[in-house]
Design a binder for these strands. Sequence first.
DNA 1: GCCCAGGAGTGTG
DNA 2: CACACTCATGGG
Length: 287
Amino acid sequence: MRAESRFGLRVEPIDLDATLGCGQTFRWRRDPDGSWTGIVGRSILRLSASSGGLTVDSMAASPCTKKDISTYLRTSDDIASIQKNLGRDDVLSRGILQIGGLRLVKMDEWECLISYVLATYANIPRIKTMIDSVSTAFGAEILDGVHAFPRVNDLREASTEDLSRCGLGYRARYVRAICEVLDPRDLDRMKRLGYADLRNELKGLPGVGDKVADCVALFGFGRLEAFPIDVWIKRALSRLYGVTGSYAKLSEFARLRFGGFAGYAQEYMFYNERSLATAGRCIFSEE
DNA sequence: GCCCAGGAGTGTG
DNA sequence: CACACTCATGGG
């Protein structure tokens, strides 16, 4: 693919493998040379590391501004400050410095909502397949064969049967039901809600429970205090802190322990727990 | 083939 | 409140 535009982006630190490959966002793939190609909005982007930040190649005619990608990568997050804050936790402090380049991303609210409804009870490779299938079937074609994530009105055209054919399984009817009850303007209104109200409203949507609501609050609405708890985080909390119990109980533990940057703590722990399982690497070792 | 997956919804004790 | 069960299916 030919690059339509190229610009540099100052962001430090950033680890593309950790940030784009950890499973918080689903439309990126790693290229053999270590750069990453993905779809954000209506743009195809390739990110590669360069001194002091990134080189951004935009491969579609649709413009992706420096501001767009800067928002997406949350470049204004003061990682050093966040790590200093979370580092007061003697469990996290052992390992977070090694993954300082893991940044949270700020996804589109709608794409994030549907993505994490699809993510229920599925592994990450499958989630990617489902999202690609839905995009191919209902999203606008950006460049030959590459489709943007479908917008609300695009997905409204899909029947439950259409969605099932995308391999969504029982999730098809949740997506269909969300399309029926959600007005696009609701998402704009929800941007102004406080975390608790936002979370409650999200939980009112079909297929959205505690965990999905927190994922959407964190990765979609950028609420850094959100702490999504899935099977990996349950394991991590049990192994590292010895805490178990209901979502509400674990959630309260995280709020007290990690405060306003709980979302970053969660992603560090998620990354660690998964790399422990897949590669045997443990950053927050106990010994 | 077998196991498990960034869970949610519903019913029951 | 806690637990048990079902949902539908693909990737490792």
